[in-house]
Simulated scan of single mutants.
Amino acid sequence: MERLSPGDTAPDFTLPDDTGAEVSLSDLRGRKVIVYFYPAAMTPGCTKQACDFTDSLDSLKAQGYEVLGISPDKPEKLAKFREKDSLTITLLSDADKSVMSAYSAFGEKKLYGKVVQGVIRSTFVVGEDGKIEVAQYNVKATGHVAKLRKDLGLDAA
């Protein structure tokens, strides 16, 4: 699967959130949406990233952004993740990894020097028109939200 680039149309999806309610990317048309893919709820890096997005959510929303975090975890595990870490971002379950595959966020990656199949930590910014504005693959969990905010020009120098 080819990686997505700015200007590409974002693949639409409908996935269950941590309560089982369905969330569709197309329902958010007209707003900017940060879609990020992470390997597993309640792991150190993923928790750090989710907490960073939660800490930034009010200012991101004030700038017109919604945040969707997507992992292969089941909704029940996502609910525990939200509760345990007081997360306020929208967490979505992509149990069959079809959305991750559509975004090229699942595939071969290096883990401790070995090539494995897995979730590629990736972030996309989808514009109001449904086109990808930012596509970042193999992002680091720590410091990623601050870097993304800077890349989007959200933090005044």
Rank of each mutant, 00 (worst) to 15 (best):
E108W: 02
F53R: 03
K97C: 11
A135Q: 04
E22Y: 14
T14C: 14
T14Y: 13
S59P: 02
Y137I: 00
T43D: 05
P6M: 11
C46W: 01
L28F: 13
K48Q: 13
I120H: 12
V125D: 10
R82M: 02
R3A: 12
I34H: 01
Y36P: 01
A95L: 13
R29Q: 15
D12C: 08
S98L: 11
R3G: 13
S5M: 11
A105V: 04
D94P: 12
D151A: 05
L91I: 12
Y65E: 08
H144S: 01
K97D: 04
S56N: 11
F37Y: 06
L91S: 09
T142V: 02
P72H: 09
S5N: 14
I34E: 04
P39W: 05
S104Y: 07
D73L: 04
Q49T: 07
L92S: 10
Y137P: 02
G113L: 07
D52I: 09
L25Y: 11
P16V: 14
S98T: 14
S5D: 09
V134C: 02
S24F: 14
V145F: 00
Y65A: 10
I34Y: 05
L111N: 08
P44Q: 08
L57M: 09
V35H: 02
F53W: 09
D155P: 01
F81C: 05
L25I: 13
A156V: 03
R29M: 13
E22I: 09
D155W: 01
F124N: 10
L87F: 08
A102G: 11
K48I: 14
P44F: 06
A79R: 14
A102Y: 03
D55G: 15
T14A: 15
A141I: 00
V125M: 07
C46Y: 01
K140F: 00
S101C: 08
A157I: 00
V134G: 04
P16C: 14
L111T: 05
F124M: 10
R121I: 08
K131R: 13
A157Y: 00
P75R: 05
A79T: 03
P6L: 11
K150C: 00
T9P: 10
K131F: 01
R29D: 11
F81W: 11
I70S: 05
P6H: 13
K77N: 12
S56C: 05
V23R: 15
S104G: 12
T9I: 12
S86Y: 07
G107Y: 05
A21F: 10
Q136A: 11
G118A: 08
Q63P: 01
R29T: 14
L78W: 03
H144Q: 04
D73I: 04
G20D: 14
D73Q: 07
D18G: 12
G118P: 08
G153R: 02
D58W: 03
E76C: 03
L87V: 11
P16K: 14
P39D: 07
V139D: 02
G64M: 10
F106D: 06
G69K: 04
I70L: 10
E83D: 15
L152E: 01
G127M: 06
F81P: 03
S122C: 06
D52H: 12
A141W: 00
D129C: 08
D8Y: 12
Y65W: 09
L15V: 14
D18Q: 15
G143Q: 00
E108M: 06
